[in-house]
Design a protein around this nucleic acid. Sequence first.
DNA 1: GATAGTTTAAATGTCAGACATTAATATGTA
DNA 2: TACATATTAATGTCTGACATTTAAACTATC
Lengths: 247, 247
Amino acid sequence: MKIDPNSSKDLSAQIAQAIRDAIVAGDLIVDQRLPSEAELADHFEVSRPTVREALKRLAAQSLIRTQRGATGGAFVNRLRFEEAYDQQVTTSTLLLSMNAVSFDVACEARYALERACAPLSAARRTPDQLATMRAEIHRQSQPGLTDEAFCASDVTFHRALVDGAGNKVLSYQLAGAVEAMQPLMNMITFTARSREAIVALHTDIADALQAQDAAKTDASLVELAAYTRKLAHTVVSARAQKEHASR
Amino acid sequence: MKIDPNSSKDLSAQIAQAIRDAIVAGDLIVDQRLPSEAELADHFEVSRPTVREALKRLAAQSLIRTQRGATGGAFVNRLRFEEAYDQQVTTSTLLLSMNAVSFDVACEARYALERACAPLSAARRTPDQLATMRAEIHRQSQPGLTDEAFCASDVTFHRALVDGAGNKVLSYQLAGAVEAMQPLMNMITFTARSREAIVALHTDIADALQAQDAAKTDASLVELAAYTRKLAHTVVSARAQKEHASR
DNA sequence: GATAGTTTAAATGTCAGACATTAATATGTA
DNA sequence: TACATATTAATGTCTGACATTTAAACTATC
């Protein structure tokens, strides 16, 4: 592990990169202990605070974990799908909001990805996942549910659909797409009638998955995508109308 | 922004979380300058190095950028799709290698996601993207190409296919899936005959996209997925055979 | 008065050394 | 043997200082 003394970047950034490269290349393997901060400081010929800044960068990416005490130190962390979810969702959410991604574009991406799961999910969904979907459908039918709670339930429903594919990589990749949409969905006001329509489509999807009918699942997803988009357009134009009237 | 004095976590982790929350919630907007390190240290009642560790954590996630000099400081960074790619690819690559994800699972996820793009790409692919695909097909036909270069070209080809959908969110979500596969693909030795078969399928895909034929694009992708998986199985069983013979 | 050069100030980047806290291990004692 | 107590090695945190960078204020010259 070496750093370039002529680089313009921060020393802590360079050191973090050097260690990161070693991990990705497999030179440092899971659960292996890194040298102590003092040893790293010696090795890279920098001070301990600088080494610490580098280690915190890696910790922020869940690449290492640290332990205090006599046999403590920094250890290469086994990156788990569950931990990686959080980061992906945070990143995706910010990407959408900071780049002013339109509802249509995000919606298109989300449903395209979900449709990719549909045939696999129809073949493999477990009774457990079906039960989750039914439970969420039931929750969504309850009157007096806030819009936020309705959206959250929607996310859980779709997560179950995606997890039904029984492919951890797919689930991971899609978690970001589905959950990142939530803030955008939260902008929509769901009327009783629109909730009813969504619940009906969710029921269609659950029925199709239960019957292991891939084609019907896909068709229902397409319908739901179209309906969601229509709903969003209604909200947007209603808001524009109001904006216009107030001027 | 407040931190919990009774938390067991690192102060720097708590401070990073507090600032991160403020960014996600929109309390800190893009390009807004954070208080100086000294001011943050005062606010959270910690020392400057602790604040710095927190800021480095945020910098590692590209949530902030720092500038030196008189008008310098830490600024909320506009997260761009291009920057987010890198992190996603690194994370996805490590997820696959550290969790011993099988070739089959990764391959299934990859092609399921690519197939989700196919109809959109058939409708929207630009001449530019078609040209990229043709160029990569040509490169892949050249004899004397190393396996690594062949894989790299394969990634470029598929990236063009995905970008053809003209949906930034889709491109972002799929970059990880496609590129993270590369280390797994690199384990395969591509014979002249298997390269020929892959090039033929790539040509089919490019032809179908050029003709804007979604169904044919999808069919060719399915064929390519099946062929890739078969190829990997051949390699794995050949390796097992060799292992057995050597004992 | 405009322009070029110089100084200043404010911020991050880096360092050195110290002390606090944690947790495993070794040690000593009933 | 079992339990309590030191030891020790590591991370976590603090203080204070200096180095470096950069924009802006200032100054001198034309």
